[in-house]
């Protein structure tokens, strides 16, 4: 839980991530305040996905610390040394972080409803009835109430992604990670998903970390944009500023290419 309003929701301290010889993040520092909606932009390979995966413990940093609400996550300093935190303790912090994937990753062996209630029941220890009530409300919110007993494989990509969003929200995360959640969708299905996300941004105070190529969406939803290049933040500002008058040359180039 946030100690007070000034403790950042996310803090990276000198995070280094290497894949073999490829240094993807080279001593990255940044913070995300509680309730912030931060969009990460930058060219392909600049390390945006890597940042989200680090926050989901799907990758492990080689150096540096990551704090969630001020709590050490995967590593902590003990006696001046950086030591790994065992998975049991990580899991308590990880519970505050939710993620929606580009490829949805719904469980095909479960129905839509079962997908959503699985973790609330078995991880948060909710009763089945309570979890179901919450899940139904969420399905309503994403506009898929009538699909609750369908198999995910029977749904369109856009519907699957909306279920995945509901599934992540059912864990009541404080932080939601969104990695190009519309990139695998047919163009006509993108709007529904973005609509749902817009609605969540308006009606909740979840901290959001967004990687997207939908610049219009980023502009509407986020209050901060970080421009990445080669694993470093080269420019950061509010969306208005960065999209209308970027200062850094690389940002100008990048935005010319994608807008």
């Amino acid at each position: 839980m946030p100690e007070n309003d000034t403790t950042p929701a996310i803090e990276f301290q000198g995070v280094v991530k290497r894949f073999g010889d490829n240094v993807v993040l080279d001593g990255l520092d940044f913070t995300v305040a509680q309730g912030d909606r931060v969009t990460l932009i930058g060219p392909s390979g600049s390390g945006k996905t890597t940042i989200l995966r680090l926050l989901m413990t799907l990758e492990e940093a080689n150096e540096g610390l990551i704090l969630i609400d001020g709590d050490p996550y995967t590593h902590e300093m003990r006696g001046g040394k950086r030591v790994a935190i065992p998975d049991k303790r990580r899991s308590l912090v990880r519970r505050r972080v939710g993620m929606v994937f580009q490829q949805f990753n719904l469980f095909p062996n479960m129905t839509v409803l079962e997908n959503i209630i699985e973790a609330p029941i078995h991880v948060l220890g909710k009763s089945k009835a309570e979890a179901t009530t919450i899940a139904e409300a969420l399905l309503d919110k994403v506009g898929l109430a009538e699909k609750r007993d369908e198999r995910p494989t029977k749904l369109s990509g856009g519907q699957q992604q909306r279920v995945a969003i509901a599934r992540a929200l059912a864990m009541e995360p404080e932080i939601l990670l969104l990695d190009e959640v519309t990139s695998a969708l047919d163009p006509e299905l993108v709007a529904d998903v973005l609509g749902v996300l817009r609605n969540i941004a308006e009606t909740t105070d979840i901290t959001m970390l967004i990687v997207t190529h939908e610049m219009q969406f980023a502009r509407e939803v986020s209050n901060r944009v970080l421009m990445f290049d080669k694993g470093k933040i080269i420019e950061e500002a509010d969306p208005e500023t960065i999209f209308t008058s970027p200062t850094h040359e690389r940002t100008q180039e990048f935005l010319r290419a994608v807008l």
Binding site: M56, T57, L58, D87, S91, R94, R95, V97, G98, M99, F101, Q103, F104, N105, L106, F107, N109, E118, A119, H122, V123, A164, R167, A168, M171
Partner: peptide, 20 residues
């Protein structure tokens, strides 16, 4: 992605295997 989604939902290692 199935493993990753199970981790993202914080399912325990045994639970991941058994249910997903």
């Amino acid at each position: 992605g199935q493993w990753e989604a199970a981790i993202a939902l914080d399912l325990s290692p045994v639970h991941r295997l058994r249910r997903v």
